[in-house]
Amino acid sequence: METARVWLVVALTLLGLFFSFVSMTGVIRLPDVYSRAHTASQADTLGAGFGLAAVALTVGLAGAGFKSVLLLFFIFVTNPTAAHAIARAAFEEGIVPWTNGDDRR
């Protein structure tokens, strides 16, 4: 039981690292702010979700585990909203989305 929990924590942490790596790659490599916002809201939320799930499993669900669940909830609510706010601000600024043939990289 204990061993299973330990390895589950390891697996969740690695998944979180993987998705955060995906989001980092996306934020660095994608061509314009809208596609980057897409990465930021999805891959990064997932990465943070897995990482915080690992934390919740480590500290146990009594007491401090509640805080990590709350944290998970906050991240799930606020992160896509922040990405939306930023993409919307970019739209208001008149930044043109990347389309096929655009040479922005």
Partner: peptide, 23 residues
């Protein structure tokens, strides 16, 4: 520079970003 240039040229009708021309 790349982003700014694309802004200047990339919008055909000025319709993007509601009623404003692109920056």
């Amino acid at each position: 520079d790349p982003d700014v240039d694309a802004d200047a040229e990339g919008d055909p009708g000025g319709g993007f970003g509601r009623d404003r021309p692109p920056r």
